[in-house]
C-alpha cells in the first residue's frame, strides 16, 4: 500500500459519506454540501488510483479540473433553486407531501 492508495481509499470514504448525506439529510444546503463531498471523493479516487504506480498522471488531473467546473455549475444552479424555494415556502427543505411520493389520488 502506498500514498496514492491512501488518497483513493479516502476518496471512497468521502463518496460513501456524500451519498448517504445527499439521500438522508433533509436540509437542502446540507444536501448540496453532501453532493460536493461526494464529488471530492470521486476526484480523489480518480487522481489517486491513476497514480498508484508512483508517477503522477496529467490526464485524470485534467479530467478532475473539468469535473470541478461541472460541479461548480451544478452547485450554483442547485443553490439558486434552493433560494427560490426558500423565498416561496420559507423552508430550506423539500416538502414531504404527496408530490414526493407516488400520488395515489388527489
Amino acid at each position: 500500500m502506498n500514498a496514492a492508495l491512501v488518497y483513493a481509499l479516502t476518496g471512497t470514504a468521502l463518496f460513501v459519506l456524500g451519498v448517504a448525506g445527499l439521500i438522508l439529510q433533509p436540509h437542502l444546503l446540507r444536501k448540496i454540501l453532501a453532493f460536493n463531498i461526494m464529488g471530492s471523493g470521486i476526484f480523489l479516487v480518480m487522481v489517486g488510483l491513476a497514480q498508484r504506480a508512483g508517477t503522477p498522471d496529467p490526464v485524470p488531473q485534467a479530467m478532475v479540473l473539468t469535473g470541478i467546473v461541472v460541479a461548480i455549475a451544478a452547485t450554483a444552479l442547485a443553490l439558486a433553486l434552493a433560494r427560490q424555494l426558500l423565498d416561496m415556502s420559507g423552508e430550506m427543505r423539500l416538502p414531504e407531501e404527496k408530490s414526493g411520493k407516488d400520488r395515489l389520488d388527489v
Binding site: 496529467p58 490526464v59 488531473q61 485534467a62 479530467m63 479540473l65 473539468t66 467546473v69 461541472v70 461548480i72 455549475a73 451544478a74 450554483a76 444552479l77 439558486a80
Partner: peptide
C-alpha cells in the same frame, strides 16, 4: 504543461462542452 495540453488540445472537446455546461448553469438561473 501537460495538464493544459490535455485540457485544451488532446481533450479540448471536453472543455468545449464544459464551458457550455457553465454557461448553461447561468442560463438556468
Amino acid at each position: 504543461h501537460p495538464v493544459t495540453a490535455v485540457l485544451l488540445n488532446f481533450r479540448g472537446y471536453d472543455t468545449l462542452l464544459e464551458i457550455a455546461v457553465l454557461l448553461l448553469a447561468l442560463l438556468g438561473i
